[in-house]
C-alpha cells in the first residue's frame, strides 16, 4: 500500500510527462488528452503502487502508452485514399489561441514521428524524459547497450533530418 501524497510525489513530473506525450503526438490537444488520461490512470492506480517504485519511470511509461494508443487509433480511423496520406501538421511556430507555446521549429515533430518505433521510444524515454538507459531498457525490453544504441541512432538521424534547422539556429 502506497501512502505517499499523489501531489507532489507524482505531480512533480507533470512537465516530463507532457514532454513525452508531445514527443509522440506533437504540441497538439491530443498530447494534452494523453497527459490527462495518463495522470488519471496513475491516480486510480496510486494506492496500489509498490512504495519502492520509480514514480517517474512509471508515469512516463503510462504516458507513452497512452500516446501510442492515440497514434494507433489515428491509423485505424485513417480513411484510405488513393493519394498519399495527409501529412501531420502540428501547426505554426507561434502561440495560438489555444495557449500552445511557440516551437523552435515544427519540423521536429515530423522528424520524431518518422523515427522507427524503438528509436523513437528510446529517444523519448532517455532524451525527452531523462530516464537512464538502464531504466529505458527495462521499459522497452532488450539490453541496456541496445537501448543506448537505439537512442544514439535516433538522435543521429534527427540531427541529419534537421541539419538545416539546427545550423540556422531556428526561427
Amino acid at each position: 500500500m502506497n501512502t505517499l501524497p499523489f501531489d507532489p510525489t507524482a505531480t512533480q513530473y507533470a512537465d516530463t510527462v507532457l514532454r513525452v506525450c508531445r514527443a509522440v503526438l506533437g504540441p497538439t490537444p491530443e498530447a494534452e488528452d494523453a497527459w490527462s488520461e495518463a495522470y488519471l490512470a496513475a491516480l486510480r492506480a496510486w494506492p496500489d503502487l509498490r512504495p519502492d517504485s520509480n514514480v517517474e519511470g512509471w508515469l512516463v511509461t503510462i504516458a507513452h502508452r497512452k500516446a501510442i494508443d492515440v497514434v494507433r487509433a489515428r491509423r485505424r480511423h485513417a480513411v484510405p485514399v488513393g493519394a498519399a496520406p495527409e501529412p501531420r501538421r502540428p501547426g505554426p511556430a507561434r502561440a495560438g489561441d489555444d495557449g500552445i507555446p511557440p516551437l523552435r521549429d515544427p519540423r521536429i515533430w515530423d522528424a520524431l514521428a518518422a523515427l522507427p518505433d524503438k528509436q523513437r521510444a528510446c529517444v523519448t524515454y532517455h532524451h525527452v524524459a531523462g530516464l537512464p538507459h538502464a531504466e529505458v531498457a527495462s521499459i522497452v525490453g532488450g539490453s541496456v547497450a541496445a537501448a543506448r544504441r537505439a537512442s544514439s541512432d535516433g538522435i543521429a538521424r534527427l540531427r541529419r533530418d534537421l541539419a538545416d534547422v539546427l545550423e540556422g539556429g531556428g526561427p
Partner: peptide, 18 residues
C-alpha cells in the same frame, strides 16, 4: 539535444489548464 527538444516544454498557462 536540449535545444532539439526545447519546444516540448509547457508554458505556465498549459500547466494550469492541465
Amino acid at each position: 539535444t536540449d535545444a532539439l527538444f526545447a519546444g516540448l516544454d509547457p508554458d505556465p498557462a498549459t500547466r494550469d489548464r492541465l
